[in-house]
C-alpha cells in the first residue's frame, strides 16, 4: 500500500520558489493499476520520482508498505527501490554496453542473489516478455518495443510490489504501445501494483483507476466507482 499525505515538493532557486507538488494526497492499494495524467509541467513526473524514491520531498508523509519513506537515508532508499519498486522509463534506459541478459541482471546483482537464482529469474522474465531467444543481443539490435519489453523484464526480475511506469509507450508506435499495455495488464492481473504516468487519455482509460494532476495537486478522480464496484462484485 502506498499512502501520501500532504506531500510538498518545493524547488528552490536563487530567487524563485516553485511548488512542484502542493499538499499532494494519494492512496494506492495493493493490486491497483493507477494511471496518472496531466498536462506538461503539472508535476506528474515529480510525483513519479517521489513515489519511486528517486527524489526526496520537502515535507509531508509518505508511507510505502507501511514504512515511513521520509525517515530513510540514501542507502535505505536504494535498498527499498531495489526490493519493492520496478521502473519502466519512456526512454527504456537499457545499458547500451550490456546485452539483454546482463541488463536484466543489473538489479539482481544489487539485490545480492546468488548466480543460480539470478539465472533463473533472468530467463524466467525474459521468457515472460517473449525475448528469451535473444538474450545475447545488445539493446541497439532491438526495436523500440522490444527494448521496452526488456526494460519490463528487468523491472519484474526482482518481484517488485510496485511497478512505476513513466510514459512507457511514449516512444512507441500504437501497435507496439498496445502490446506493451497488454503486458502491463497481465502483470497487474498477477498481483503487481502499477502506477503509470501518461498523457495519452486513451491509454489512461485502460487502467483501473485514473487520477489527474494539475498544479501539483490531485485534482480529480474518475471512474473510481466503476473499478470499485467491480472489485466489490
Amino acid at each position: 500500500m502506498l499512502i501520501m499525505k500532504n506531500i510538498n515538493k518545493i524547488f528552490q532557486t536563487a530567487d524563485i520558489q516553485t511548488h512542484a507538488l502542493r499538499d499532494f494526497c494519494l492512496q494506492v492499494n495493493e493490486g491497483d493499476f493507477v494511471s496518472v495524467t496531466g498536462p506538461s509541467g503539472s508535476g506528474k513526473t515529480t510525483f513519479l520520482n517521489i513515489a519511486g524514491l528517486l527524489e526526496t520531498f520537502s515535507n509531508g508523509e509518505f508511507l510505502l508498505d507501511g514504512e515511513d519513506v521520509g525517515k530513510l537515508n540514501d542507502n535505505g532508499r536504494s535498498r527499498m527501490r531495489n526490493e519493492k519498486i520496478g521502473f519502466i522509463f519512456q526512454g527504456f534506459n537499457l545499458i547500451p554496453d550490456l546485452n539483454l541478459y546482463d541488463n536484466v541482471d543489473v538489479p539482481l546483482r544489487y539485490r545480492g542473489f546468488n548466480a543460480k537464482e539470478r539465472k533463473f529469474r533472468i530467463e524466467q522474465n525474459l521468457e515472460r516478455v517473449g525475448l528469451a531467444s535473444r538474450m545475447k543481443h545488445l539493446p541497439s539490435q532491438l526495436s523500440g518495443g522490444q527494448q521496452q519489453r526488456v526494460a519490463i523484464a528487468r523491472a519484474l526480475a526482482t518481484d517488485p510490489r510496485f511497478l512505476l511506469a513513466d510514459e512507457p509507450t511514449g516512444n512507441l508506435d500504437s501497435e507496439m504501445a498496445q502490446s506493451v499495455m497488454s503486458l502491463l495488464e497481465d502483470i497487474n492481473q498477477q498481483g503487481t501494483t502499477i502506477i503509470m504516468v501518461t498523457h495519452d487519455a486513451q491509454l489512461a482509460q485502460r487502467a483501473k483507476r485514473t487520477i489527474q494532476v494539475k498544479d501539483g495537486k490531485v485534482s480529480e478522480l474518475e471512474n473510481i466507482s466503476r473499478q470499485h464496484n467491480q472489485a466489490i462484485a
Binding site: L54, D74, N75, R79, F87, N93, I95, Y110, R154
Partner: peptide
C-alpha cells in the same frame, strides 16, 4: 543516464 538508471534500480552510492 545509465548511472541514474542503476541508482533507480537500487544501486547504492
Amino acid at each position: 543516464k545509465q548511472i541514474g538508471t542503476r541508482r533507480a534500480l537500487g544501486a547504492t552510492k
